[in-house]
């Protein structure tokens, strides 16, 4: 497999308290799909990359069903806002704010995320 040199060494990092935790190579994030990462505190984060290259990170847990599966949902955009739909019962969550688009009362945690060389 050959990769363009400018993308090979970019890393995805998530902000935890003060520190940036390196999670994986940017190339592991397929545009339009997610991956999950395990955080030192035992929480799980779901990471996504959209077509424009923008990165997002939210809690991986589906607050409705309880399973840690949001990283496996389908992504898209709704009224200009990026979202992921849970693979369990399809509720959608705004990737920037964590707000559930189908239930105003529900919001999940989000994380700051960046790619860096």
């Amino acid at each position: 497999m050959t990769l363009a040199p400018e993308t090979t060494d970019l890393k995805v990092q998530v902000l935890l308290d003060e520190d940036w935790l390196t999670v994986c190579d940017l190339t592991r994030l397929l545009p339009g799909r997610g991956v999950a990462a395990l955080l030192p505190d035992g929480n799980q984060v779901a990471l996504f990359r959209d077509r424009a290259g923008q990165l997002y990170a939210i809690d991986n847990r589906d607050p409705f069903g309880g399973a840690a599966v949001l990283s496996r949902g389908l992504t898209g955009s709704h009224q200009g806002r990026p979202f992921v739909a849970s693979p369990l019962l399809k509720q959608r969550f705004d990737l920037e704010t964590g707000q559930c688009l189908d239930d105003e009362a529900v919001r999940i945690a989000t994380y700051e995320v960046r790619s860096t060389g």
Binding site: M1, T22, V23, C24, R28, V35, A36, A37, L38, G42, Q44, L47, R61, G66, A67, A68
Partner: peptide, 21 residues
Amino acid sequence: PEKLARFVSFINAPDTPDPVV
């Protein structure tokens, strides 16, 4: 192998199973 790499619970800990399962 590239497709297989996707079948992990955690991208940063491929050998760790999801503790919730």
